[in-house]
Amino acid sequence: MSPKKVFGFAGWSGSGKTTLIEQLIPRFVMRGLKVSLIKHAHHLFDIDRPGKDSYRHREAGASEVLITSDQRWVLMHELRDEAEPDLHRQLERFSPCDLVLVEGYKHADIPKLEVHRPSVGKPLLQPSDPNIVAVATDAPVDCGVPRLDLNAPDAISDFIIEYLDRRHELRTAALR
């Protein structure tokens, strides 16, 4: 496992994971943390458009295409017939940072916050996932972990930082 602090978000489609993460990132950045994010997609996706040079180069068979400018860069890697790398392999690709947020990778062995809205009509994931350390919800639910108000991103960001700091302290103490 990478030495970076890693924290995941799990929940059914439509529960508000992306919206919550979007609210949390600036709160972590205001604390002075350098934050990265990995999002797992369960479907075919493309960040490029047909007709663009990079798209044409990938379609022609290039294994990787790096697009760079004075504002950002992105590296696209075509798996072709290769197996999808697991989360831990993907985490190794990140530049140094303080915190990696993970959206998706529902079954990964990392601490996670479940984002749950009963209005979505799906059951809690938490009872069957020991890696879910809290549930953020907009309604009362019975769960065996701390329940956080989904509409209180400051409290959620505090919980995540405190949880990761406590976990880091326990790991450090165990190594002594």
Rank of each mutant, 00 (worst) to 15 (best):
P3R: 07
F7G: 02
F9R: 02
A10S: 12
G11W: 00
W12F: 12
W12H: 13
W12R: 12
S13E: 01
S13N: 04
S15I: 04
S15D: 01
S15H: 03
S15V: 08
S15N: 05
G16Q: 01
G16N: 02
T18I: 07
T19W: 07
L20S: 01
I21Y: 03
L24N: 00
I25G: 06
F28H: 05
V29D: 00
L33W: 06
V35S: 01
L37Q: 04
I38T: 14
H40C: 09
A41F: 04
H43F: 09
H43Y: 07
L44C: 10
L44A: 14
I47Y: 12
I47H: 09
R49L: 10
P50N: 08
P50S: 08
G51Q: 08
K52E: 07
S54D: 03
H57P: 05
R58S: 11
E59Y: 09
G61I: 13
S63E: 14
V65A: 14
T68W: 11
D70S: 15
D70C: 11
D70I: 10
Q71Y: 12
Q71H: 14
R72E: 10
R72L: 10
V74R: 12
M76K: 14
M76P: 07
H77A: 13
L79Q: 11
L79S: 10
R80A: 14
D81F: 13
E82Q: 15
E82H: 14
P85W: 11
P85E: 12
P85G: 13
D86M: 11
L87D: 09
L87N: 10
R89H: 13
R89V: 13
Q90L: 15
E92S: 15
R93K: 15
F94Y: 11
F94L: 09
S95K: 15
P96L: 14
P96R: 15
C97V: 11
C97L: 06
V100R: 03
V102K: 01
V102R: 01
E103I: 08
E103Q: 10
G104C: 10
I110W: 04
I110L: 09
P111I: 01
L113Q: 00
E114P: 14
V115P: 10
H116Y: 15
S119T: 10
V120N: 09
G121V: 08
G121S: 08
L125E: 06
L125N: 06
P127E: 02
P127K: 07
P127L: 00
S128K: 14
S128R: 15
D129Y: 04
D129N: 13
P130W: 05
P130H: 10
N131K: 02
I132H: 00
V133W: 02
A136Q: 01
T137P: 08
D138V: 07
D138M: 05
A139V: 04
A139F: 05
V141W: 02
V141K: 06
V141L: 00
D142L: 09
D142F: 08
C143S: 09
V145E: 02
V145P: 03
V145F: 01
P146D: 04
L148T: 04
L150D: 00
L150R: 04
L150V: 02
N151L: 06
N151I: 03
D154P: 05
D154I: 02
S157R: 00
D158I: 01
F159A: 00
I160G: 00
I161R: 03
E162C: 06
E162L: 08
R167Y: 01
H168Q: 10
L170W: 08
T172E: 07
T172Y: 09
A173M: 07
A173F: 04
A174Q: 08
R176T: 12
